[in-house]
Design a protein around this nucleic acid. Structure first.
Lengths: 204, 204
DNA sequence: CTACATACATACTGGTTGGTATGTTAGCGC
DNA sequence: GCGCTAACATACCAACCAGTATGTATGTAG
């Protein structure tokens, strides 16, 4: 009857699973709800994914992984002043997807908090994404030091750990409070910290 | 046969539920596992708690609430320099319960991240605990300003939001990485931020 | 046009879930 | 000791879960 498109079907399943998992977490995610959302059936699901766990892994590898890097890592690759650049990213994220974050949180942090103590595979996959994120940030900070935009006594690796943690922390607070203003207030604290990373201008 | 002690029984149930929830989250928490851990049966559970949800609420109200305030809020009540005091708390927490945090995370943050989008009751109860925590921190910072220990241009309310978020963020990162060193590295970033809150000494 | 594999849908299964109904025992007022 | 209730234990239930077995339609190679 309908034209078949296995790639699209797989993508539909991944997207529906992504949304379900973002809402309920992985353990409480229901395959029935996912299939209802996707407008498909178990036959389709188990044709493309052998188990629920494999579906969850695929969501991490193919959806969340790219989403996070596209949003937080890649944009840092080509910017002169990493602090300016990061501030821009934060504002863009807060204004653009603020609502989503408030209602559902960061999908990476959600899964990492839920699954890290429960499943080693999830923990490592999510940890890898965090590592890539932090590396991109650390590289940007190091380049900023070469440019003279970032203070030379800053440890890029350590700073990147804290910055990522603070971002996820702020998003988590705002999600619980369901308050976008709290996100901005929290972000202000982060901006203050980021300011302390800036090199002082030479000509004063 | 055994002597009865309803209060102790209830406490045992709460403690077992607390551990189960901390490990698996609330939704994936199994009443059977809780009862096995507690060495009790459904009769006991449903005598003391009408539903699983009520049990979860009780864990929040009677276990997590006190745990968080005792650990993070009450100690701030009587300290001259809030920054010194908070640094001490962080070190104590990291050295004392670091292992627990690494393996299971912060029970408050765990539940807040999981349940805030799913159940409004959980969200409000956990949000209330966060509010109390932040208030205690903000009050301490304000007193520090009166003492001249904290810079007067710091906004205590906004700073407390960021500090709590950063603490939870660092704990979350370390839990995913399963690495206590990452917790300390992340904590260093937080300590740098806290240092920026200090008033500069008058005699320089 | 045939043959076969891919891509699904449908129907079903064993196990687990939260919750309940019933049974039993301990403690306590009298 | 009697009688009642609180404090549990045991047995059971419908609903849902992930997963499977089977059926069917589509696309494609020959």
């Amino acid at each position: 009857m309908l034209a078949r498109n296995p790639d699209q079907t797989r993508k539909t399943l991944l997207e529906a699973a992504y949304e379900e998992i973002r809402h309920y977490g992985f353990q409480a995610a229901s395959l029935s709800r996912i299939l209802t959302k996707a407008g498909l059936t178990k036959g389709a699901l188990y044709h493309h994914f052998p188990t629920k766990l494999a579906l969850g892994y695929a969501v991490v590898d193919e959806v969340i992984h790219e989403e996070i890097l596209n949003c937080w890592a890649t944009p840092l690759a080509d910017c002169e002043d990493p602090v300016d650049c990061l501030v821009n990213l934060l504002q863009k994220a807060a204004e653009g997807a603020g609502r989503e974050f408030i209602e559902m949180g960061c999908p990476l942090n959600n899964l990492a908090q839920e699954m890290s103590p429960v499943d080693e595979g999830f923990r490592q996959k999510l940890g890898h994404i965090y590592t890539l994120w932090r590396q991109a940030l650390a590289n940007a900070l190091a380049r900023g030091q070469e440019n003279g935009k970032v203070r030379p006594d800053v440890n890029p690796a350590a700073a990147s750990i804290f910055i990522v943690a603070a971002i996820e922390g702020c998003l988590g607070m705002a999600k619980n409070a369901r308050d976008i203003n709290l996100l901005f207030e929290c972000g202000e604290g982060l901006l203050h910290y980021l300011d302390t990373l800036r090199a002082k201008p030479l000509n004063l």
